[in-house]
């Protein structure tokens, strides 16, 4: 409501508080990283793999909670292990969808086991833990978690930028890239590890389950706007950043909306708008 009346005052108010500032910083960093790795997942038709890594984040986090470890240890261990596993299982670093489905059905089952172990055995156990990991709590990030998220995502973006050229080559024309001596398989696995790291950072903030929307939505939007690879890659990160910030603002202005829902709503609206504009543009051309 504040935002609607006086946008500038609303933004000032938003940034004046610690929990919202942390959410904007961490959310922005996660958005850029997720948008960029998501672009590769979409052009390589590996969306389902990204989904499985989100589920791995859920199981990893709950395993750590059940074992009394730091959640971040479980998040990173879970997602990176599954990324390496999926990279090893599939031909050329790409697993079959039935294999992925089988693996993640079991991952979720394990997650449920850890959830029940955590809630029944430990005295500090809290049945909200599972819900928090699944649906995220971006307004509940600590300073420490924020710094970690920003640094990790910065690392992901830098590594991805470094790998972008060979990775694009390997993604668009795998056979030729392979013949030219590009390590196609290694690049595929490296991409999965980058997705895994992003997923581990994003899961506590936007939720293990809706992470998929952040990976695919901005990328699909960017691909509607431009087909040129590098431009689309950068645009995907940028679109994700803007959408997450808009979503956070919306959730802040309308407190009854869960922040993750607000972010997903903005992403869906962005994709819808790009699609309508794309269709209109085509009609003009014809």
């Amino acid at each position: 409501m504040i935002l609607a009346l006086a946008p500038l005052a609303g933004v000032g108010h938003f940034l004046g508080q610690e929990f919202t500032r942390n959410a904007a910083l961490a959310g922005g960093a996660i958005a850029v990283a997720a948008g960029m790795v998501g672009y590769f997942l979409v052009v390589r038709a590996q969306v389902f793999t990204g989904d499985a890594l989100g589920h791995a984040a859920f199981t990893g986090a709950l395993a750590a909670l059940a074992a009394g470890l730091d959640v971040h240890v479980g998040l990173f261990a879970g997602t990176i292990l599954v990324a390496l596993l999926l990279g090893a299982l599939g031909p050329r670093g790409r697993a079959d969808d039935v294999v992925i489905g089988s693996v993640f059905a079991w991952l979720l089952g394990l997650g449920v086991l850890f959830l029940s172990l955590y809630t029944t055995s430990s005295s500090t156990g809290d049945s909200r833990a599972g819900i928090t990991v699944l649906f995220g709590s971006i307004f509940g990030l600590s300073d420490h978690a924020t710094v970690l998220a920003v640094l990790t995502c910065l690392g992901v973006v830098l590594v991805l930028t470094g790998l972008a050229r060979p990775l694009l080559f390997a993604s668009f024309d795998e056979a030729v890239a392979s013949a030219r001596g590009v390590p196609v398989r290694l690049l595929g696995t490296a991409l999965l590890v980058l997705v895994a790291v992003t997923a581990a950072e994003a899961a506590p903030a936007v939720g293990a389950l809706q992470l998929l929307g952040l990976l695919t939505g901005p990328a699909a939007t960017a691909l509607l706007i431009t087909r040129r690879p590098f431009r689309a890659l950068a645009l995907s990160g940028g679109v994700a950043l803007v959408e997450v910030w808009l979503g956070l603002g919306l959730a802040y202005a309308v407190p009854s909306l869960p922040p993750t829902f607000a972010i997903m709503a903005v992403i869906v609206a962005g994709y819808g708008a790009a699609r309508v504009a794309d269709r209109a543009g085509r009609r003009v051309e014809v």
Binding site: A45, F48, G50, L212, T216, G217, F261, M264
Partner: peptide, 21 residues
């Protein structure tokens, strides 16, 4: 388009969470 399906899935989950809250 897998990307669209993925987006639909995430949006559905977020909507479910909205109803729960």
């Amino acid at each position: 388009e897998p990307a669209v399906i993925g987006l639909a899935q995430a949006a559905a989950l977020a909507t479910g969470y909205l109803f729960i809250s």
